[in-house]
Design a protein around this nucleic acid. Structure first.
Lengths: 188, 188
DNA sequence: TTTAAAAGGTGATTTGGATCACATTAGGTT
DNA sequence: AACCTAATGTGATCCAAATCACCTTTTAAA
């Protein structure tokens, strides 16, 4: 919960009272490797703030292939947002890659916090703004760049992930085959 | 300005006073076909709410090819959000496809409105939430679907655009070549 | 109404990656 | 340590879509 306060106060400052009120909306959950937080078909009750560990948000297409929408780590928020916001069954999975801990927040909690505390509505808006921009950049990348460029961009942005997680997953994130990715860094 | 009120009140209700205050932040601008609202390299002062007309948000890659991030029409918001939010030079263009009219809002105006009126912060958060979800769905599409499926999805979502704008632009939006797109609907 | 330019269609050719098929290595488990 | 499974690298083959080239049709402009 200490992290939570620090995380939020990167954007807005909270009084003791506000924080006391706020934290009642969050619950802590430890997660082991390979454990699912969200499974396709689920009714998605929570979004998660990662305190520790690494997670992937992915879906399985009609051919059974996995595609990763997001890697999440410390201080990242994640869930199947389509299901969470629209209150429809999940089409995605959220799975733990490296064991860790998350804070869980219900949609009701999120909306209550936003309504009660203007500050928190601001916090969520800023977060969404950043997320929106990041997604647009990802779309730009998917529309125009070659596997080579995608790989280079990824290694610049997340050099550590490159080491810590299987290359197969990186391929699923970049939208190239495992084999092609492998040949890329062989090439230089 | 009538549209503006209606548009905002789809999400929050405003008092007369609030609306009077709010509308001072917007300016009207008529736009002709082929006119640019944002040009690569620009300092992006505004985001735009489309009142009338059709617009495209695109960028030009290193090979000189255009890629369309967004089509915008009545009641859509648009700009080069990366440049607008981060206050860096534009890497994108916003160009008018069918003449129309937009309402312009500065980043300062947006932030002021959000700070002064909790309602408006809520409005923008809800809008961003929807936008975020839409972008995620677009990424999912780009990661997994075939040109065929992209075309079908697009014609389901925007059958009218299919008629009103050049197929070349649709190809640039879907991330397939003009020729491939042409052969797709020849096929059925 | 003529002329030019943009949009659209379609065959032929090329090609970047996907796919397939193995071999090798690294990790994890009992 | 032995065993099994996951991760990775790499050659060979294949294929969907890009590219190239050109023609027809539509639209807009002079």
């Amino acid at each position: 919960m200490e992290n939570l306060r620090k995380h939020i106060e990167e954007i807005v400052t909270l009084t003791e009272d506000e924080f006391r009120q706020l934290k009642t909306f969050f619950t802590v959950k430890k997660v082991r490797k390979n454990q699912y937080l969200v499974h396709e078909g689920d009714d998605v009750k929570f979004e998660y703030l990662v305190v520790k560990g690494i997670f992937k948000v992915f879906y399985v297409d009609m051919d059974g292939k996995e595609h990763i929408l997001q890697f999440a780590r410390e201080n990242w928020w994640m869930t199947d947002y389509i299901a969470y916001f629209k209150q429809v069954p999940a089409t995605m999975f959220v799975e733990c890659i490296e064991e860790g801990e998350v804070l869980c927040l219900t949609l009701h909690g999120r909306e209550k916090l936003s309504a009660d505390l203007h500050k928190m509505e601001h916090f969520f808006r800023v977060k969404l703004t950043n997320g929106y921009v990041a997604l647009q950049q990802r779309i730009a990348m998917l529309l125009s760049s070659t596997p080579q460029q995608r790989y280079e961009q990824f290694s610049k942005l997340s050099p550590d992930l490159l080491q810590r997680i299987p290359k197969k997953l990186i391929a699923e994130y970049l939208g190239v085959s495992r084999e092609t990715l492998s040949r890329l860094y062989a090439n230089k």
